[in-house]
C-alpha cells in the first residue's frame, strides 16, 4: 500500500519547488530554442538544464534502488566506480597518448569494455556483500577508498584529453536533435528497467529477498545471487554514467569526477520514500527523487548560491523533507488534523 503512496513525497517536493520558482521568477519555466556554439538548434532554459544534468543521478538511482532493496544497504563506491569506468574508457580511446583527436577505438568498444570493468567491480562488491556477509556500506567502503586511486593508476596518473567532436555528443547534443543526449540516455535506461520490471521476476525476487531473506530461501530463491545481480546492475548504470560524465568534458579528473554522487544517489532513493533498510521499493519514486535533488540544485544556483555553500541549503531542505515524511511525524499530523476537523464542524 505504501508502495503506491510513496511517490507523492517526491512529487509534492517537486511541486513545492516549482511553485517557489514560479513566485520568485516565472522566467524559470521559459524554454527557448536557440543556436548553440556548434550552430545547431537546441532547447535551452533552466528546466532543460535540470533534465540534462539530472540524468546521471537518475540513472544511478535506478541501480541504487535495486541494491538498497535487495541488500538493505547502500553502495557508497559509485562515485569512485564512475572514475574507474571513465578512466578505462579514456585508456581505450586514447591509448597511451595524452591528447588525441582521432579516437583509437570506436566509442562503442570503449563503452562495452568500461561496462565489463564496472560490472566486475560491481560483482566484487556484490560478492563481499552476498557471500562474505559484510554490510554493504562497509564492503563498498573498500572500493570507495581505492577507486579513485585505481582510476589514476589505469591511466598512469595522466589526464588524457580528447578533441573529437563526435565524442561530445553523448554528454551534449546530437546534431539535429534539440534534446540533450544525457536525458535521452536516461529515458532509455528508464524504459529498459521498466520493461525488465514488467516482464521478469527481478523486481519481485529483489523485494522478497529484501523483506525476508530467510523465507525467500525457503521458497527456493537464492538470496546471494539476487544480491549479486543487483550490484552488477548498479555496475552497468555506473558505466553509462561514466560515458556521459567523460563525454561532457572530453577528459577526466580523477579526484573530481562524480564526486559525492553516491551521497546524492542514496538521497534520491530516500527522498523517493524507499526504506533504506531494504524490502519494498518504488523505482519511479527514486528517479523522481533524483530530479528533485537536481531541481533544488539548479534553483539554488539560480539564486546565486555559491557552489561550495550549496550543501548547507540542500541539507536544510532534505531534513525538512525527511522530517515531514517520517511515519511518526505523519501520524502526529494526521492525529492533529483529526482533532481540528470536529472542531471545525462545531463551528459550522
Amino acid at each position: 500500500m505504501q508502495n503506491k503512496k510513496q511517490i507523492f513525497i517526491p512529487l509534492a517536493a517537486l511541486i513545492v519547488l516549482a511553485l517557489f520558482n514560479l513566485i520568485m521568477d516565472p522566467s524559470f519555466f521559459k524554454i527557448t530554442m536557440g543556436l548553440n556554439s556548434e550552430g545547431y538548434q537546441v532547447l535551452s532554459g533552466p528546466l532543460i538544464t535540470i533534465l540534462d544534468s539530472g540524468s546521471e543521478l537518475a540513472i544511478l538511482a535506478i541501480g541504487m534502488t535495486l541494491v538498497t532493496a535487495a541488500s538493505g544497504g547502500q553502495d557508497i563506491s559509485v562515485g569512485a566506480a564512475v572514475a574507474i569506468a571513465g578512466s578505462v574508457m579514456l585508456r581505450v580511446l586514447c591509448g597511451t597518448e595524452a591528447s588525441v583527436s582521432e579516437l583509437k577505438a570506436p566509442v562503442i568498444v570503449a563503452f562495452l569494455i568500461a561496462c565489463v570493468v564496472a560490472m566486475l567491480f560491481g560483482a566484487f562488491n556484490g560478492i563481499l556483500v552476498a557471500y562474505f556477509r559484510i554490510q554493504p556500506m562497509i564492503a563498498t567502503l573498500i572500493l570507495f577508498t581505492a577507486g579513485r586511486s585505481i582510476a589514476a593508476w589505469i591511466n598512469n596518473n595522466r589526464l588524457p584529453n580528447i578533441s573529437n567532436q563526435a565524442f561530445t555528443y553523448y554528454g551534449g547534443f546530437i546534431p539535429g536533435i534539440p534534446i540533450p543526449t544525457p536525458f535521452i540516455i536516461a529515458v532509455a535506461c528508464m524504459i529498459v528497467i521498466a520493461l525488465v520490471m514488467k516482464f521478469t521476476t527481478l523486481g519481485l525476487y529483489t523485494q522478497s529477498v529484501g523483506i525476508n531473506e530467510h523465507s525467500s530461501k525457503l521458497n527456493g530463491l537464492n538470496p546471494a545471487v539476487i544480491k549479486l545481480i543487483s550490484f552488477v546492475i548498479l555496475g552497468l548504470c555506473v558505466a553509462v554514467v561514466a560515458l556521459i560524465k567523460v563525454s561532457r568534458v572530453s577528459s577526466i579528473n580523477y579526484s573530481v569526477i562524480a564526486k559525492d554522487i553516491e551521497m546524492d544517489a542514496i538521497l534520491a532513493v530516500a527522498l523517493g520514500g524507499n526504506a533504506l533498510s531494504g524490502g519494498k521499493f518504488n523505482m519511479a519514486a527514486s528517479i523522481l527523487g533524483a530530479y528533485v535533488i537536481q531541481f533544488l540544485t539548479t534553483t539554488l544556483y539560480k539564486f546565486k548560491v555559491r557552489s561550495d555553500a550549496l550543501p548547507a541549503y540542500k541539507a536544510v531542505v532534505v531534513i525538512l523533507l525527511v522530517v515531514l515524511s517520517a511515519p511518526i511525524v505523519r501520524k502526529k499530523l494526521s492525529e492533529l488534523a483529526k482533532k481540528l476537523k470536529p472542531a471545525k464542524k462545531e463551528v459550522a
Partner: peptide, 14 residues
C-alpha cells in the same frame, strides 16, 4: 525514527 544515514548525511552537507 529517521534513518541515521540520511540524517547524518544532511548533517555532513550542512
Amino acid at each position: 525514527e529517521i534513518q541515521p544515514f540520511i540524517v547524518t548525511l544532511a548533517g555532513m552537507f550542512f
